[in-house]
Design a protein around this nucleic acid. Sequence first.
DNA 1: TTGTAAGCGTTATCAA
DNA 2: TTGATAACGCTTACAA
Lengths: 381, 381
Amino acid sequence: MPSIKKNPVSSVTPGALEPAPALDHPPARSRRGHGRVTLQEVAALASVTSITVSRYLREPGVVAPATAQRIQTALSATGYVPNKQAGQLASGHSRMVAAIIPSISNSIFSETVQGLSDTLQASGYELMLASSGYSLEREEAQIRAVLAWSPSALVVTGRHHTIGALHLLNAAHRSGTPVIEVWDQPTEAEAVAADAISQVGFNHHAVGTAMAEHLLSRGHRHLAYVDSGVEEDFRAHERGAGFRAAARAHSRTHRRDAATVMLIKPSAGDAFECGRQALRQLMAVPGPPITAAAFANDHLACGALLEAQARGIQVPAQLALMGFGDFPISRQLQPPLTTVSPPRHEIGVRAAQALLTALQTGTRPTHSALVCEMQIRASTG
Amino acid sequence: MPSIKKNPVSSVTPGALEPAPALDHPPARSRRGHGRVTLQEVAALASVTSITVSRYLREPGVVAPATAQRIQTALSATGYVPNKQAGQLASGHSRMVAAIIPSISNSIFSETVQGLSDTLQASGYELMLASSGYSLEREEAQIRAVLAWSPSALVVTGRHHTIGALHLLNAAHRSGTPVIEVWDQPTEAEAVAADAISQVGFNHHAVGTAMAEHLLSRGHRHLAYVDSGVEEDFRAHERGAGFRAAARAHSRTHRRDAATVMLIKPSAGDAFECGRQALRQLMAVPGPPITAAAFANDHLACGALLEAQARGIQVPAQLALMGFGDFPISRQLQPPLTTVSPPRHEIGVRAAQALLTALQTGTRPTHSALVCEMQIRASTG
DNA sequence: TTGTAAGCGTTATCAA
DNA sequence: TTGATAACGCTTACAA
């Protein structure tokens, strides 16, 4: 019980602060170096020179079996850990990929990072991660920072960047560091540009259009799009633009049967609460009642769904709701939520694969236009 | 239509200075080197030697104002990006922290990583991230891999590691690389060990105990703990052990009013579904009906809650439910879920702070015993 | 305030 | 199959 009680958090320093117990092999060294075992030391133990050990590490087949045996013994005797910095300085290859995403804790991106990480790690690449908090300025600073580590490749989110960031990305790109933008697709103008940055993602505008068309096909004519509360969530805005465009297109071709769209911009904060609030706004709209609403993400939509339940509003009879993201909770609610399922994890995997291929072949990474699947469930009838 | 257009390229250099012509086409070099601008080149442009530029970068105050001016100009004219590898090789300091967590996509850890990342970045440290997929063997391999990058400090999850991993951690620790274990607390035996690895987290056994005591205090005597479906989620198991221990302790002191506990181990898979399934199991238990269940995490508990709704089981009247994690959805359901709120984000922040302090002062990082708050809501009456 | 010299630990290159 | 040598780009230590 005590540890869960509201106690002022205590910091306890560990027992005696011994002044660094002497290592097993006290490395008599200058102030430089970190006292780790070096290739030289391993080599001495194996009665070869360091270059031979280096070679054994990279191409075991090349050294004579007897030598290999001795090296292996020396390696495990010393517990050698290579120094990647030195290796990369000499070779020019870092085997590390840097990724910059808007948010680590947003589950949408974290699954992409998981895909990236798993795929890269399987090929022996490490991942350096930075999150920009949806700020383009911070993104630029972070691109600059990670570039100092000479990553083998770079992953950024979306196609919106500051001018400075674009310069950095283009420079990296031109000097042979593959760059990929995830979670987006090029506009047509960009797609034809020869030096465009490669992208692995999907067309958010088209997804928004598909969402509207789904609702229109169910007979709804008074629609709403509830945007993300995050100012710089460009992708959510773009889905909204696609949504609105589809409704307008419908109105143009069906003059007698025009559709209306209203855009709602919730405040920032807990997404479920914002969704609840948005529902209240929707119900209070004057004029012909809105009969269907699409949301920038499932959390918003779930919040609205729960609020509708609480207020006795029938979903979908009175109001159809749909989300984006296909979060696990969405299929659990009653009625289950219609949503769009983006290839969160696949984006990471494909981006990593494209980078690995580009690295191997020395070509630029390929674009990948991925598809979202619409999960049509009871919340839209 | 896109609000921000990404246009190809340009030879616009930052600052309105004479653009270095060599930039567009990397200078012809040997196969070595990455073709980036070096300190030497900047120095030449500023009519000083590289060491002066290096100094300016690290301690701007030390160089003469006029020199500083010339260097600054050269810096922006060339778009110099430092080479961290070379810098670290020479200085021995990497300004990079490596973290190894069980899963990137699990929201519990991703918030901790967010806290780590934000705090470290604010101090100019980069984050290298690896996920072990809850496998101790993979964790060991990853510790080995990131150690090759000579991180300034190391973050691992929990206090369970392979023998090999422990050796690596202790060696790092002894050779001056601070190591912190997050999301756990030492046992008493460990706490007294002088060379114990520092931990930032809380006592899962105590949390389990508190969960059981909460249910016991509400009069429940037939309890269940639904464990995590993840075999190597030691922390969930430990909460279960604490839960069971509390019930047994109650039975010992209240012979006339004994409590029973059953442990349920769901299969792996979608947590909500596992929770639903667990609820079905709970209802099918022979003998006196179980009146309260605690779950290894909120997703399981929410699944059970939704399944209870679907089956017309009254919560909490017929069955009280509680979770762990305090996920946003938990307070939204009807009835809202009682849960335990772990300091997900704070763990990351505190771990980072402890490491930064240790790095600055050259001491070992401090332990932090953090507190979980129990959120008592309607699902337990 | 600035510069010179000497590495840091590894790998590329060429020679044996 | 192994080795000698010279980088890689930067920083420490010390000199001027």
